[in-house]
Design a protein around this nucleic acid. Sequence first.
DNA 1: TACTTTATAATAATAATTATCATATAGTAA
DNA 2: TTACTATATGATAATTATTATTATAAAGTA
Lengths: 155, 155
Amino acid sequence: MMNASALLKEKGFRITPQRLAVFEAVLGNKTHPSAESVYTAVREKFPSISLNTVYKTLQSFQEAGLLWQLNIARNLRYDGNTLPHAHLCCLRCGQVDDLNGGLAKLFTDLADLGMTKSGFKIDSLEVNFYGSCPSCSRHAVNLGPSGPGDNRLPE
Amino acid sequence: MMNASALLKEKGFRITPQRLAVFEAVLGNKTHPSAESVYTAVREKFPSISLNTVYKTLQSFQEAGLLWQLNIARNLRYDGNTLPHAHLCCLRCGQVDDLNGGLAKLFTDLADLGMTKSGFKIDSLEVNFYGSCPSCSRHAVNLGPSGPGDNRLPE
DNA sequence: TACTTTATAATAATAATTATCATATAGTAA
DNA sequence: TTACTATATGATAATTATTATTATAAAGTA
Ligand SMILES: [Mn+2]
Ligand SMILES: [Mn+2]
Ligand SMILES: [Zn+2]
Ligand SMILES: [Zn+2]
């Protein structure tokens, strides 16, 4: 992982401990945390940070292209991996994983189709799979009735 | 379009004017309306309906597989087309269009990849493109800075 | 028609996110 | 170092979409 301070400075940010902590909390793992999760994680080291600051920091990082803001089941999650890739979102435990491998061409094909078929100018593309992760599949918890496009995450 | 009453009855619903109106409002067009839009549309003919009823009706239709609940830029939109297809979501005017043609295979490929690569059991799959529709592209309104995964819809 | 069940509407509650604004801090230059 | 100015932060309130509660109304049935 790259030097956070240098990267932030390069993007025109002032270097604050809050920003460094949030940066670390998102870029330092692959869990696609929500703002609330980042807040919880950061408070371990920096108990006085406010949730508002977490939200604003994440948003400014997003605008600077440092991270990807994901819309998963109506909540925002954050991803340090800004390369196009799809997500596997478990509706039972809430975990979000990257779907790696062989997708680059699919994304290109999708983007090409989207562009050429319609004249639509694509800024970003999100591909989310909803279902059950291997671990949750085994336990077979019942989530109740579901239909097409049911993207409910557990409480 | 099929007979609404018969279809609802088949799914075990009691036939009420509210349900027929909501059914009509969603299945009768391709605008991917939000609950609020459905509410507005339905009140033309049925002024006493409540927003709560619209929400509950849409949710029960979704659970019955009659429609697809889309997560677009953190809001729920509803789609009478339950076949897998992608969406072009304009961040300037808020319009959501289907991306038709040639996508069936892509979806199959995606689903296969998602399944076999990881053991993840897929219940549903959402593909959303965010950007500017042809009409908005021409007007070139500035939305401010944006980066990867910026899915903000206009106010 | 009378009866039972389910749906509706009014209302309140919830939860995630964003706005406001006074204070604190980072960067910078004397 | 210090003083200065712009920006960031934290406390708090506001907003917005969605869901919960519950008394009343309407649908289905016989
Ligand atoms: Mn990811
Ligand atoms: Mn559609
Ligand atoms: Zn799981
Ligand atoms: Zn548009």
